[in-house]
Amino acid sequence: MPQLTPEEFERLVIDELDLLPDDMLDGLENVVFVVEDRPENGTLDTLGLYDGVSLTERGQYGFGEMPDRIVIYREPLLDLCADLDELRDQVHVTLVHEIAHFFGIDDDRLHELGWG
Rank of each mutant, 00 (worst) to 15 (best):
D51F: 11
D18P: 01
L80N: 05
G64S: 04
T56M: 13
V96E: 07
G52L: 05
F63N: 10
D37V: 09
V31M: 05
E86C: 04
D79M: 04
Q60G: 15
D68L: 06
Q3D: 14
D51G: 10
D106V: 14
I72N: 01
G42A: 11
L20R: 08
T5V: 05
D107F: 08
D22L: 07
D26Y: 10
Q3F: 15
E16Y: 02
L20Q: 12
E98P: 00
E112R: 14
L28T: 02
D85G: 14
L19R: 12
L47T: 07
G116S: 13
E98C: 02
E86I: 03
H111N: 13
W115V: 11
Q60A: 14
V93G: 01
Y73P: 00
T5D: 10
G64W: 00
Y61D: 11
G52M: 07
V91Q: 03
G116C: 11
Q60W: 08
E7P: 00
I105A: 02
L20T: 12
L87N: 00
L49D: 00
V53E: 08
V34P: 01
L25C: 12
R38S: 06
F33L: 11
R109A: 08
V71M: 05
F33E: 01
V53G: 03
M1W: 12
R58Y: 05
G62D: 06
T56R: 14
T94A: 01
E57T: 15
E57P: 03
E65G: 08
E16H: 03
E40D: 13
D15F: 09
C81G: 07
L55P: 00
D108Q: 12
L28H: 06
L95H: 05
